[in-house]
């Protein structure tokens, strides 16, 4: 075996053999016993499993993963005690929004939504597009699922923006805060969602809507944080100096100078947050979120290509509606800012 000599030389043989060798038989061992030509001795990387073969006291990698699992299960009651009340409002908001969007009759809700699009964007093209999209979704019987998805996106995006902008502002004030939060943002964007969702099922019941709410928010909050931080940091130094010269307090500077000048970047962040929330729709449906994601999954699972495609296009339509509306709103804010 590869590293046996090392342990013998270090005088650790007795300590090593104190642990019984109860490692399960590996495929390599089985092949060796059939007399099949192995891949030769060679020098494998000194991983935990390889070292375990030479010295049974050393834990195997599977013991490390098992320890993580047992640690989590042991902490469960305390984690649940802390996290449950913190996240309960999210469940309540998602359930209320879902109830609202599905119980208000369409001839009240759709005109209200189209009027909202007009009020925010003041653009005839955008409003017409919104109206036509809803009509198209309604004609193919996808209106209720589209509204369910829309309600989830509304709630998750609002919370993402409400939490993300203050965090971005905090990051922009201090390099230390920025340096400590950036790795967390990287983690949130790249850690596979199911890796933390399945343990969350152990904490909260699967029937709770906060499960998919947390999944969407944790992924979608990142752009608005990054872009708020960037937008505020990009405000011209000369303007800040002028504000200081005028004797503005920090709070006045933030509200009257930094945020208005950073607004285009912040709005870009909000736009990206909306897009990323919609990108998470299908993963949210994997943890039982209602809406268009369910239809996409059904199409994938049963090889009903048409069902999956149409539902996917429905998600794209929602994305384009929200994108155009928020961009038109941004253009209005920009124009108003420049007019001053």
């Amino acid at each position: 075996m590869a590293y046996e000599g090392v342990f013998d030389a270090l005088g650790l043989r007795e300590w090593c053999d104190a642990a019984g060798d109860n490692a399960p038989l590996s495929m390599a061992d089985l092949l060796a016993s059939t007399g099949a030509a192995g891949e030769g001795g060679g020098l494998p990387f000194p991983s935990l499993d390889v070292l375990h073969e030479a010295c049974p006291q050393i834990v195997q990698t599977r013991d490390v993963t098992a320890a993580l699992e047992n640690g989590f299960l042991a902490m469960r009651p305390e984690l649940k005690f802390v996290l449950d009340p913190l996240t309960q409002p999210l469940s309540w908001m998602l359930d209320s929004a879902l109830w609202f969007f599905t119980s208000v009759p369409w001839w009240v809700l759709l005109p209200a939504l189209i009027y909202l699009a007009w009020a925010v964007s003041r653009s005839r093209g955008v409003t017409l597009f919104v109206a036509l999209s809803f009509a198209a979704l309604g004609v193919i019987d996808h209106l209720e699922v589209a509204l369910e998805t829309l309600s989830i996106i509304f709630v998750c995006t609002s919370i993402s923006v409400l939490l993300g902008v203050p965090i971005g502002i905090a990051m922009s004030r201090s390099k230390t805060v920025q340096r400590s939060i950036l790795p967390v943002l990287d983690l949130l964007q790249t850690l596979p969602t199911f890796v933390y969702l399945i343990p969350l099922i152990f904490l909260f019941s699967i029937t709770e809507s906060k499960l998919y709410g947390i999944a969407i928010i944790l992924y979608a909050i990142v752009p608005v944080i990054r872009l708020t931080d960037l937008g505020i940091r990009l405000v011209d130094r000369d303007v800040i100096e002028a504000a200081d010269a005028f004797g503005m307090s920090n709070r006045q500077k933030l509200w009257k100078v930094q945020l208005p000048l950073a607004l285009p970047n912040i709005m870009a962040g909000v736009n990206q947050t909306i897009m990323m929330s919609l990108a998470m729709v299908v993963i949210a449906s994997l943890v039982s979120a209602p809406g268009l994601g369910v239809l996409v999954l059904r199409g994938i699972r049963n090889l009903e290509l048409g069902v999956g495609l149409v539902a996917g296009i429905g998600i794209v339509l929602l994305a384009v509606i929200l994108d155009r509306t928020s961009k038109a709103a941004l253009a209005r804010v920009d124009r108003a800012g420049k007019a001053e």
Partner: peptide, 20 residues
């Protein structure tokens, strides 16, 4: 009646209930 979104959540719900 709760319809699960994926086989993984069904298994996780069973395991979570059993552990607790």
């Amino acid at each position: 009646r709760f319809k699960h979104g994926s086989g993984e959540t069904l298994a996780a719900a069973l395991a979570a209930a059993y552990e607790a």
